[in-house]
């Protein structure tokens, strides 16, 4: 098997990005449609910040709400998929650089992945 060029990696990255965005937009749309089933409910108070609590701010809480078909949890799940898209892109780059035997860049992309994982693990617990 020949080493893939940067261009080959680019094309697979483009396909992955398209998939990630389409999927997340669809999930957000479905959640939004469910949320607007009761269209004339007044909006919550957005003037003052109060954290939504674990049901919408942790991955476990969001999954729990999705299973119960909670509209806001479904939207939030779509947004998590969207956030995961650039992370998946970095994973693609790690694999791409590894196949090019570019050890330096495998290391650099793994470091970026580590930072992203740290940030996302904040929401995991």
């Amino acid at each position: 098997m020949s080493k893939p060029t940067d261009q080959d990696v680019d094309i697979s990255v483009a396909a992955m990005l398209r998939f990630g965005i389409t999927l997340s937009a669809l999930v957000v749309l479905i959640g939004g449609a469910l949320y607007l089933r009761n269209p004339f409910v007044p909006i919550p108070n957005y003037h003052h910040f109060n954290s939504a609590g674990p049901s919408l701010s942790t991955i476990a809480g969001i999954f729990h709400g999705v299973v119960q078909l909670q509209p806001r949890s479904i939207i939030q799940f779509g947004l998590v998929l969207l956030i995961a898209t650039p992370v998946a892109r970095v994973v693609f780059c790690v694999v791409g650089f590894a196949r090019q035997r570019s050890l330096l860049y495998v290391g650099i992309s793994l470091f970026v992945l580590l930072i992203l994982t740290y940030s996302l693990s904040n929401g995991a617990h």
Binding site: P44, Y46, N50, S57, R72, Q76
Partner: peptide, 10 residues
Amino acid sequence: LSRGYIDPTI
């Protein structure tokens, strides 16, 4: 997300 800045309805 973990701080609750991302409100799904907005």
